[in-house]
Design a protein around this nucleic acid. Structure first.
Lengths: 244, 244
DNA sequence: AGTCTACTCTGTACGACATACACGATAGCT
DNA sequence: AGCTATCGTGTATGTCGTACAGAGTAGACT
């Protein structure tokens, strides 16, 4: 029986019910909600212990009664921001996983600070695991083995993440990205200016044909579906193969 | 003609050749190499302006003559850490993209701090763009249009990234991940302890069948190939379809 | 009831960090 | 020779995460 890391315990409400001392004025949920609200409105950079504490009306150090460190708080935020997964209904595995992945991506786009958080941790909270469970469940009739199902779900989440990242950085969010360019158009202009056709033959040919120049329609929904179908086609091929 | 953001200009050596004043004692390349060495040996957290400055024997503020901000330095690091892409040889597009993606992932695993860096920026440096160019080039005989080629390359890079992230966080690297667990085995134990089979039917069934318990062979190369083949199969299907 | 003590929140303090600013030194330019 | 753009330095500021010690609170124990 492994010992639960403190954050995990807190995410699953495994805290021992308090015995002595003054009643806590807060709980983890309100702190987390306050932090999320700050992240939503002012960005992740504004989520400092001081700001969060001020938001809930408490001295900064009080937060450490509920959270071991700022990193823990961020982890809990990443978990709490996740809504329940979509209902299966009577969708085929493919249709379900398509909306599952799309909603996953939409979540990341609606809360861009999730992109800045380290997704490097495998899911441990109840909500993220529920998503995982539903994806596995959708694949349960297909004859794939456990490892294949898990890998398929992983690949889909990963795609949602990278697509959201790309869409957001190029996108209408209006956020500057690190290099200072403002969007797909400017990105294309920069590339066109800098590329030597001799060393970058394929890329500069693509630039000349104007891919990024007419930036309407760039990174539209079709581009998301493209990669999604790539993966779903792959899964479908795998299912067909393992049915034999 | 778009104005080049300063970092981009620096990455492409577009700096005006210096005219007046004392000869610079440094250049961007040595600063970047020093920063990369620190990141390689002590992790990204140790890359502070003071540390980098100390490494090259200069006062911290001197770095700002070469770099506009720490963020810029990180961007340049992410670019400079990239080796040249593999040679095409006479590989099929599929074989080439397979090793292309694998090397991409191996790079991320060998320099884990790249995972911590914001990959949210589309590639702008010469080295990353060279990788992109080679992938596009590999697809040039396949009849895909520009957008499809670009999206395919994007999906593959994304997969390399998410797979490297997952492998690294579960992996033998021995790094703790944010929640404090130590690896796949412990992860499995935590899940087993916490999951209610009623609300997580598929997941807890998978746990009981022992997927994560025998952690040898977990996240081995086969798991990487699995997702890779998913994508490549998808691309292949697309090529076949668009050939008609 | 009175005492103990675990637990709450607060205030202060420290060390790290990114970076703004002003200064003296340097070396090409006129 | 003198001007001036540029270079590296030293100092300073504001922010941050968090360690620590203390004062108040309220259930547990006698």
């Amino acid at each position: 029986m492994a010992e639960l890391p403190p954050v995990v315990a807190r995410m699953w409400d495994r805290e021992p019910t308090t015995r002595r001392g003054p009643r806590p004025r807060l709980d983890l949920a309100t702190i987390t909600m306050a932090a999320i609200e700050i992240a939503d409105t002012e960005g992740l950079a504004a989520v400092s212990m001081s700001n969060v504490a001020a938001q809930v009306g408490v001295a900064p150090m009080a937060l450490y009664r509920y959270v071991g460190s700022k990193d823990e708080l961020l982890t809990v935020m990443a978990e709490s921001a996740v809504p329940p997964p979509p209902e299966r209904g009577n969708l085929s595995w493919r249709a379900y996983l398509a909306t599952w992945t799309r909603l996953n991506r939409d979540l990341l786009l609606s809360r861009p600070w999730l992109l800045d958080l380290r997704q490097s941790t495998p899911p441990m909270g109840p909500r993220r695991l529920l998503w995982l469970d539903r994806a596995l469940d959708a694949l349960s009739g297909t004859g794939l083995d456990d490892g294949e199902k898990f890998n398929a779900a992983t690949a889909l989440t990963g795609y949602a993440l990278t697509n959201a990242t790309l869409t957001h950085s190029l996108g209408a969010g209006g956020e500057k990205f690190a290099a200072g360019a403002k969007g797909a158009t400017e990105y294309g202009e920069i590339l066109a200016e800098v590329l030597d056709p001799a060393t970058y033959p394929a890329l500069s040919a693509m630039m000349n044909s104007g891919l990024l120049r007419d930036s309407t329609g760039w990174m539209e929904d079709a581009d998301f579906r493209f990669g999604l179908d790539l993966l779903l086609d792959g899964i479908e091929a795998l299912i067909a193969r393992s049915a034999r």
